[in-house]
Every structure is written in structure tokens, then in C-alpha cells.
Nucleic acid binder design. Structure first.
Lengths: 337, 337
DNA sequence: AGACCATGCACAAACGATTGCGCAAAACAG
DNA sequence: CTGTTTTGCGCAATCGTTTGTGCATGGTCT
């Protein structure tokens, strides 16, 4: 029993050369005018011994890996988990595999991940960036097609597909204003990140246009941050604000936990509204009104954009113009405000 | 500007041979008695041109890839997302990378993933299996170290680390019984999966021991299944059961949605208890009593077990005895029953 | 001085696939 | 019978790295 299972083995057993075997099995038979007989014998033998090409060797030789690198700031965050799910599904459907990295919100780990992707010859990269400037991503992008998702940079030539966070926050803030809330607190996430900055801008624009009292505080997309800031904001005065806009569902959880501890009932004493898709928000009591992002659509666009770049690259064409797309989120109205 | 960036380029620029350069840069300098001068010159040049080894070539030559394959049934499920997060963190800490695949609960995609892992020369595999029999995993395991997590097979020589689902369900059921509930419904997940079977066994054992009326229904770890089964169970008679045990947090959501539609208040009219770790459960009203699994610990054990196998393999030792470990879950008491 | 050893490095063969090029044999034309 | 074309396939280089082996050189010992 030959335990080797490579082209050379099939070559030996069929009597055809390695190159012929390769050409048959990689579907280039007629391009190289291989005889029907040779094709038959080789494919039969390949089936018989269940031949599978060594993707590492293939990748070394062809400089392609059928792999896309995906780096997110935290796969344990349901938001990014859903994103990863959508993206891997899309990739898998196109015969590509996913190399996953978690930057854990740190630029160093992000860079490591991107370097690793290059070292492994990935064919493309999809990234939720955490760096504060686009330089490194731009450098990588010269060698490997790259598309940003969810977060992006200002004045960059990088492609991205994100939701319109300005519009989302504006909608949410306007909704609160229309409902008659007068003093509105926003608890934000990572201040430097683009989605957060845009949300702040939308929030402030909507409320300042209407002359409604407001405040922004906080600094992380975490439960802990939500709890801390809500405690700080309300512990002196339970009526300091009559509504809270949590910039993520994690922040929301922290906020609610703080409110309850202070004896404030969310939805009744204080209106709450949140960002993020999360089925659980419907099952809280009251169910939480929120801004949902079309993740499925975003993932699909990101992947198809990436593939268009990859194809251009394979064809030796110049890099197509960057695709910079903002998708409108939707307001899902429930009972929390 | 030499745009090549490989050993050959450094070799040319330093005047040393490729092999010497390789040995210096892979830290085998003294093993091969390279002179201090050569080491200095080579490392300096490597730094200067920012050399990074081509991992694909390295992998082809050494048959190692510094990569572990991870296959889960659905990365969008928060439970598996957390698991993936724990595992990638552990791997990354040890200098390994993660090739992620999502089997979407289908055996075919699971097999594809495992084949792909082999084709890519991964050094090890961590899998949440969905197949109904261990055969394929066992075959793979002969070539590549493999550890199952969360789900496992009966009478198999495969290693696994799972939580003790029997104990968890037993605890939950006993808790309900002690609280005085008399007619208890369990809504289960995928019936064939080992965790589910064990939960059913624990549930039935605890209640039958005490002579408490019970029933098990349902067939998927999904919101939809929870909704459907709860509707079916309660729509004829709102008092058909006085407590529900949801076998996952997704099932729980569906159940609660159904109960509310029927005008039944969870926690008051009907006690509810759930499985799974999910921060949101604390923020529902009432907060949900549940069985939590020590995912961090499970991930750590799985990874360290896998590494012990990988090391044995590298050292040419026989495969160590399988590690089959059940970790005790904990009951987190809240107010929903 | 000759034998011997340690030192420091280069040669070249792998790993498993792809692919440009060219060589035979057969077919065909003149 | 010679010259050209077509057909079918093999040779060998290549991707970038690792590693067993061996060859000089220079030093030490007797």
C-alpha cells in the first residue's frame, strides 16, 4: 500500500509523467491536448487512491491559497461573531477558506495578524480595523486586496463597507426627541473609532438642531463601561437625564444594570435606546428600541468587492477604484422609549 | 531596491549561502557552528530588509504549519462564538493561528472542513462534531491530533473535553423539583447530539426519582424550535406545565416569546430555567436561572490536551492515551423560577 | 612534518505542485 | 521519399525553505 498520495505516486502507477497527471487533475487536460485515454486512466487512479492535492505545495507554486484572512477586534462580541458568520458563509460558498484572527482591539495584534496573512499568502483580507491611522492597512493593500468592514478611515483610498452610523444615530436621537425626551445621555464606545465618531456626530446634530440638552460620556464598547458611566451620571441625581442612548448592546446591558441598582426603571423612569442587532433585545422587559445594521448585506458586499479586486489582480489589471459604501441602518421600534 | 525578500536575496547580499542564512534566521546558528560574524551580518541584513519567512514554503518543507483547524456548527451562535474566542486566544498565545470552518450543523460540510484541514497540513484540530458517528473523526485523528469539545461520541477512543450535561440537567431539574414545581416540560435541542442526550437523561433521572410529571419535546437549538414547542405545549391549556426547562438560551427566547403571546408570564405563571452562558439572561425580567458551562476552562483544557498530542507527535512518540474529560457546570440562580 | 580534529560554511536534495518549452512519433502534404 | 504540421506527452526549472552531508581551512598533537 503506497502511503504516499501525491502526483508522483499516481504518475508512477499510471505510467504517465507527473506533469501529465497534474494537467489532467487540475482540469487543464484539453489545453495541453492530453489524450482521452490518459485522462481516463489518470482520473480513475486518482479516484481509486482518493488523491487530494497538497494545498500547501499548490499555494507555494501558484502564490494563491484559496484563503481569505479575517481580522476582527473580538470574536466573542456577538456583533463580530455574526459578521464572521456571514463572511465565512459567503467565502465558503465561493470555495474559499477563512483564516481568523482576533486583534482584541489592540493595534499591535492587528498588525501581527496582517503580517501573518501576508506570510501565509492569503488571497485577500477583510478587516475591522482598530488602528488609529490607515497607513499600515494601505501598505498591505498594495500587495493584497483588502476591504474594511464596519470601521473605516477618513480620507483613505482603502475600500470599505460600513453602515451609516451618522444616519443611525441621527435617527435614534431624533426619535427620542420626537418622543418628547428633554435631557439625553449618550454612552459611547471607543471614542477614536469611526463608527463611534459618526454616531456622536449624528447624535449631537439631531439634538442640537432641536435645542435638546445632551451629553456624551464613556470610552468602550463594554458592559463595564456602560455600568460605570450610567452610575456616574445618575447616582447624584436620578433625574439627571430622562433618556439614555447606548452605543452598543453591551453598553446597554451595563447601563440597565446600573439603573436597576439605583432603583430607576428603564423604559418608565428613563427611556433607553440602543445600537446593534441582538435578538435578546426583544426579550428584555421592556423590549429595547434599537438601531439595527444590515450585517448580511454588508458582509455580502464586502466579499463581492474583495473578489472583484482579487479577480482584477489575477488578471493582471490595475487595482479597480476603491469601493466606499455606507449602508443605511434601520430603526427597530419596541417599547423601551 | 530588490523587491524579492527571501533567503536567496539575503544570501546574495551578505555573501553567505542560503543554508547559512536559513540556519541563522531560524535560530539554529550554534547547532551548526555559525561564526559570530556571520550571525551578525545576516541578522543585520534581515532586519534591514525586514525579512519575514514564507510560511507556506516553511510549511511545505517541515510539514508543520503553526495552524490549528477549528470547526464549529455555527459561529453565529454566541455559545460557539465564545468558545472560538477562548480557543483562538489560547492558540494565539502559543504562537499558533486558527483556520476556522463552520459546518452549519451538516455532516457534509464538517467532512469538507476536516478534509481541507488535512490538505492544508494543520498541526491539530479542535472540533465540535456534528456527525452521528465517530468514524470519520477517528480516521482523521490517526494522522492529525484531534480533540473534540462540547460534543462527543460514546465508546470512542477520541479525546474530548465537554461539560457534564447529565449533571447540569440533573441539577436544574432537581432545583425545579425542590422549588415545588409539579409538571415540568423540557424543550430540547438536536436530539442525536450527545449533550442533548445527556441533558435529557439528567432531566428524566432527577424527575423520575422524585415522581414528578415531565415531558420532553423539540428538536433543535433554535429560537424557532422553542417558540413552536412552547406554543404547542401551552396553547391548549395554559396550565399544562408549571415550569419549562429550555436546553439552550436560543430555545429559551422562543419559549418566552410563545408564553407572552399566550398571555402567560414567565417566572410568575410558569417557572423557566435555561442552559448556556449568556450575559443577557441576567437582564431579562425576571433574570433567568440557568446552568452555565465553564467555557474558558474547557477551551484551555482542549488546547493544552491538543498541544500535548502535537508534542508527542513531533517527538515521534506514540499517541498518548485519550483524554476524556467532563467538567461540572454550575447552577446560576436568578429569579425566573 | 604528517596525522588528526574542530571549525565554518556551501552543495544539493528534498517538500509537492505548476508550467514553459521542446522532443518524438504520427499524420499529412508535395 | 522528404518536408511540414499536428498530436501527445515528458523534461526540468521553479516557488522558498530546511537539512544531511561533505569539503576546505586552520590549528593541535606527536
Amino acid at each position: 500500500m503506497g502511503n504516499k498520495n501525491n502526483l508522483a505516486a499516481i504518475s508512477e502507477r499510471t505510467g504517465y509523467s507527473v506533469s501529465t497527471v497534474s494537467r489532467v487533475l487540475s482540469g487543464k487536460a484539453e489545453k495541453y491536448r492530453i489524450s482521452a485515454e490518459a485522462i481516463a486512466k489518470v482520473t480513475e487512479e486518482a479516484h481509486r487512491c482518493n488523491y487530494r492535492p497538497n494545498l500547501v505545495a499548490q499555494s507555494l507554486r501558484t502564490r494563491q491559497s484559496q484563503t481569505v484572512g479575517l481580522v476582527v477586534p473580538g470574536i466573542d462580541n456577538p456583533f463580530f461573531a455574526t459578521l464572521a458568520s456571514v463572511i465565512t458563509a459567503q467565502l465558503s460558498q465561493r470555495g474559499y477558506h477563512t483564516l481568523l484572527a482576533d486583534s482584541r482591539e489592540t493595534p499591535e495584534e492587528e498588525i501581527q495578524a496582517l503580517e501573518m496573512f501576508q506570510d501565509r499568502n492569503v488571497d485577500g483580507i477583510i478587516a475591522v480595523p482598530v488602528a488609529s491611522s490607515p497607513e499600515y492597512h494601505e501598505r498591505v493593500s498594495q500587495d493584497i486586496p483588502l476591504v474594511l468592514i464596519d470601521r473605516y478611515f477618513e480620507k483613505t483610498s482603502l475600500s470599505y463597507v460600513c453602515t451609516d452610523n451618522y444616519a443611525g444615530a441621527y435617527m435614534a436621537a431624533k426619535y427620542l426627541a420626537d418622543k418628547g425626551y428633554k435631557r439625553i445621555l449618550a454612552i459611547q464606545g471607543v471614542p477614536a473609532s469611526m463608527p463611534n465618531r459618526e454616531r456622536v456626530r449624528g447624535f449631537l446634530t439631531a439634538l442640537n438642531e432641536r435645542g435638546i440638552e445632551n451629553q456624551v460620556r464613556g470610552d468602550a464598547f463594554s458592559v463595564e463601561n456602560g455600568r460605570r458611566e450610567a452610575l456616574a451620571a445618575f447616582s447624584g441625581n436620578p433625574k439627571a437625564f430622562d433618556a439614555v442612548f447606548a452605543f452598543s448592546s453591551t453598553i446597554l446591558l451595563g447601563t440597565i444594570s446600573a439603573l436597576r441598582r439605583l432603583g430607576i426603571t428603564e423604559g418608565k423612569d428613563v427611556g433607553v435606546i440602543s445600537y446593534d442587532n441582538n435578538g435578546f433585545l426583544d426579550f428584555m422587559n421592556p423590549a429595547v428600541t434599537r438601531v439595527e445594521q444590515p450585517l448580511q448585506e454588508a458582509g455580502e458586499i464586502a466579499v463581492s468587492t474583495l473578489f472583484s479586486f482579487m479577480e482584477a489582480r489575477r488578471a493582471g489589471l490595475p487595482h479597480p477604484a476603491p469601493v466606499q459604501q455606507l449602508i443605511r441602518p434601520t430603526l427597530v421600534v419596541r417599547e423601551s422609549c
